[in-house]
Amino acid sequence: MSKKQKGQTRVCVYPDWCKGCGLCVAFCPAKVLVLNAFGKAEVANEDECINCGFCELHCPDFAIAIKPRARNGAAQPDPRSGWEDPESEHGRASPPEPTPEPNPNPEE
């Protein structure tokens, strides 16, 4: 968030979790998001995103993720997460599995 440079990010909305409250749309300083016909948030002007993070912090439903953009223009895959680029061949973002925790010894 240090440099408010445009065009550095991918904005991913997970439509199944979005309830369409409109907070991200209303408060986005760069007007990146809109509500679509289904009443869900949708990315309209991704290149305008200044990576302020407001939408990600304020989405009550954890349905928005901001990812740094790879050089080829795709979201950087995170080897830890299994979080997929919405524009990859599966076409849709799905929430990642939680990272497994090491088994704590219950007797301790």
């Binding site: 979005c18 901001i66 740094p68």
Partner: peptide
């Protein structure tokens, strides 16, 4: 900001009904 939602998902019980 990049990992905000990611780390939240690490703490959610995904076997619960979401949203």
């Amino acid at each position: 900001m990049a990992d905000v939602t990611q780390l939240i998902h690490d703490y959610l019980r995904h076997n619960k009904k979401f949203p």
